[in-house]
């Protein structure tokens, strides 16, 4: 028996959401009196996996894994899970997790909770995990009834903890001879922004109150001063003021950063659905009746065009004194 964690490389190192998943998996392993094994595709410095709690790392080896195709990857992880006798398998609920975890669950007939937000509660035969439902309006406790269980952890649900520890890394050759995916990559367009929105701890977001795309400079300045990612409301993406991958909300992406600063966004229920998991919410709006203030921790009533540059200055001063 063991707990297996799928981890991934991004920009030359192990992804933050993967380290969160290893922390999470090693806590479950401790509860089950077993150890955590990470699996990974790619050759990078793996020492953080050991520091996050993995005792072993299986480096999945097969040329077909050059693209993380769900048909190949789910089979590769299945082979690793069988070799390790894994009963619980953890993913980060990110792009790969969404493509691969349900596929693996189907292969293993494993109950799956996609987007878990808390540690599982395990007692005897009962195994329950909480996840957000109705776009964050509620939390549901799922019971998993199968022998094997898969959990994909919503990014930013827990801070990453790195301690002393090291993992033994070994190559694990996988056999994908029977599978031939017709999917081929034609082109990859890299996101030019440095920060991935779902991974970001700090997010500065702006809405229609900014009046036009030409006014986003001050939003970017504030984000830059904080080291934050930028996001926007739906109409802003629909009008092409900002790229669609910045659209947060019920029909965009859901995020849960430590800090979400909403500027010139009214706080419609569909917008809140994507951001109400944020730990701290700041709202800047000229309308004191804006519904967003009812869902905020801190509010400033006033004109964003005056407040935002002053805020950026204040952040710079604060950073300089740190």
């Amino acid at each position: 028996m063991s707990v297996l964690i799928y981890t991934e490389v991004s920009k030359g190192k192990v992804k933050k959401s993967s380290l969160e998943a290893v922390n999470y998996g090693s806590r479950i392993a401790a509860q089950l009196n077993t150890t955590a094994t990470a699996v990974i595709v790619g050759d990078v410095d793996l020492s953080d996996l050991g520091k996050a709690g993995a005792k072993k790392v299986l480096k999945l080896k097969n040329d077909k894994l050059a693209r993380l195709d769900s048909q190949y990857l789910s089979s590769a992880i299945e082979q690793a899970a069988n070799a390790e006798g894994a009963t619980v398998i953890i993913f980060a609920h990110d792009f790969t997790g969404k493509e691969v975890a349900p596929r693996l669950a189907t292969k293993l007939k494993a109950g799956i909770v996609a987007g878990a937000v808390d540690n599982p509660v395990i007692s005897g035969d009962s195994f329950t995990v909480k996840k957000n439902v109705f776009s964050g309006k509620a939390v549901a406790t799922y019971s998993l009834h199968s022998a094997k269980k898969i959990i994909s952890l919503l990014p930013n649900s827990f801070p990453v903890e790195l301690k002393d520890g090291s993992a033994e890394a070994v190559d694990f050759a996988v056999n994908l001879d029977g599978i031939n995916s017709p999917l081929k990559v034609k082109e990859v367009k890299k996101d030019t922004s440095e920060l991935n929105l779902t991974d970001a701890e700090l997010v500065v977001s702006a809405g229609r109150g900014m009046k036009g795309p030409e006014n986003w400079g001050m939003i970017e300045d504030l984000a830059k001063s904080l080291g934050a990612a930028t996001a926007c409301s739906r109409p802003v993406a629909d009008m092409d003021w900002r790229p669609h991958h910045e659209h947060v909300g019920q029909t965009g992406i859901a995020i849960r950063p430590d800090l979400y600063i909403a500027i010139g966004i009214s706080g419609a229920i569909q917008h809140l659905a994507g951001v109400n998991g944020s730990k701290t919410i700041v709202v800047i709006n000229s309308d004191k009746e804006a519904p967003f203030f009812k869902s905020a921790d801190y509010g400033i009533i006033g004109d964003a065009f005056e407040i935002v540059p002053k805020l950026t200055e204040a952040v710079k001063k604060f950073k300089a004194n740190q």
Binding site: K109, K137, A140, H145, S295, A296, D297
Partner: peptide, 15 residues
Amino acid sequence: DKLTSISLFELSKGR
């Protein structure tokens, strides 16, 4: 097969 079920719902705590 029914591999999962929901045993409890809670409304998210608002601010």
